[in-house]
Amino acid sequence: MTTDALGTAPVTSLTQLAPTITGEQLLASLTPPAQFANASFDNYRPDADYPSQQQAVDTLRVFSAAAPAKSGGFLGLGRRKKSDGDQKPGVYLDGGFGVGKTHLLAALWHAASGRKLFGTFIEYTALVGALGYAKTVELLKGTALICIDEFELDDPGDTMMMTRLIGDLVTGGTRFAATSNTPPNALGEGRFAASDFLREIHAMSGNFTTLRIDGLDFRRRATSGQAEVTDAAGITAAVEAARAAGRVATRDDFTAFVDHLATVHPSRYLKMVDAVDLIALDDVVELHDQMQALRLVAFIDRAYDAELPIVASGIPLSEVFDEAMLSGGFRKKYLRSVSRMIALTAASKP
């Protein structure tokens, strides 16, 4: 069973976990999550009712096989003038949650040759935070392909930093692929004064080939309409069964768990979920604080990547975000998280 930092006690609660991670460790972790270790274009199953899914596969196959540009500027900073026949250095998968964008991004990563990286948007921003901008650029230069999952520009600082980072790397021949629930020219809408940054956003947008992927959320097709709920006795039974089988099961009061997330940088949530096999949460309540909600979204993303089942009591986890959140600028993030929580609580059923 996993022990704490001193190696003296088994982990029984997520609030025991406050892992640290260095920039070098973060860089080494930039590979597809375990559930996409074998993702390929061949095992993606496009929905025949939505031709854009097959079109995305076909376009990405071509993109994966194409040679990267030798020079040129992502933001018009390069010295080579593009011709109409040049392939853009970036491809951007825009679509609703649950249509397989991350699968396709991982498939592209596996198909591409040369040095390649795969991480979430928040992991790249954390990398810059840990190493500094100049060192990050130095370490990433020469990378053939950088895949960015869940691309979001939630604040002006991220907008400027990611625009600059992508521009500096593309001038050296690096290509980019990204997924998002928002078209690139609409990033930041409803979240900050995006109009003040239209030049940067539009410059970035103009250098991506945008692939719109339509379809239904495959997780909602396979599960019920809300997250599974159990009672205290059911949670106890699930935790005891997991521990009896030699698995690491944590149990936390939901409010205490949410408060604890504020003490751990979201880039470290990956190491938190690495430490456990089952999460149990008592007394789930509706959230009304945006920062708490966004931290929960980031944690659920990592739990989903790790295919980590969750058992919970109280209100369904799918109802944890209040109406103001679900109608605000982060609506798509919250709905994606709802979909993932439904899937994770369904996975906890025997």
Rank of each mutant, 00 (worst) to 15 (best):
D94Q: 13
K81L: 15
A177K: 04
R220L: 15
F254H: 03
A324K: 12
V128N: 05
T174P: 11
S267C: 07
D289W: 07
E123C: 12
G328R: 05
T345C: 03
A256P: 11
D214R: 09
L165H: 05
G215K: 00
L153A: 08
R331A: 13
T20V: 09
Q16I: 10
V239C: 10
Y133H: 09
A343F: 14
E152I: 13
K70S: 15
A178Y: 00
T263K: 15
L75R: 06
E138D: 15
N185R: 03
R220F: 04
D289I: 02
H288M: 11
A130M: 12
F218T: 05
G172A: 09
I315C: 02
I21C: 11
E189K: 06
V239P: 00
R221I: 12
D217E: 02
K333Q: 14
D86M: 07
A343K: 07
F63I: 08
S29C: 01
D158L: 08
D94K: 15
A144Y: 06
K333S: 12
R45Q: 10
Q226R: 15
Q292D: 11
G172E: 01
S348P: 01
T12Q: 09
H265I: 05
V264F: 11
L326N: 08
H103W: 03
Q16P: 14
G73Y: 09
G7Q: 10
L270F: 10
L139G: 01
I310F: 06
E240I: 01
F330A: 06
D283P: 07
T171I: 14
L75D: 13
G72N: 02
E319R: 15
D58P: 00
L27I: 01
G234Q: 01
S195Q: 14
L344A: 12
D86R: 09
W109I: 09
M272S: 11
Y44D: 00
E123T: 13
A245S: 15
K141A: 11
G114Q: 11
G78E: 14
G234T: 06
S64G: 00
L344S: 10
V99W: 03
P46F: 01
K135N: 14
P68Q: 05
Y124K: 00
P10T: 12
L6V: 12
F121I: 08
A134I: 08
D149S: 13
V311R: 13
L26V: 10
N207H: 14
A227W: 09
M272N: 10
A28L: 03
T15C: 12
A241R: 15
S64P: 05
G314K: 06
S71W: 09
H265Y: 08
E307D: 14
F218V: 12
S29E: 08
R340I: 13
T230M: 04
A312L: 06
H103Y: 08
A34N: 13
G167P: 02
D4L: 07
M1K: 02
Y124I: 06
L105W: 03
D305F: 01
P316F: 06
P156M: 04
V170F: 10
A222T: 09
R295T: 05
D58N: 11
V264D: 07
Y92I: 05
N38F: 06
P309S: 07
G85T: 14
S13L: 09
F254C: 03
W109N: 07
H110V: 12
E123G: 14
G23A: 05
D217A: 04
S52G: 11
A65M: 04
G7L: 10
V311E: 02
A130L: 15
A67S: 14
P32S: 04
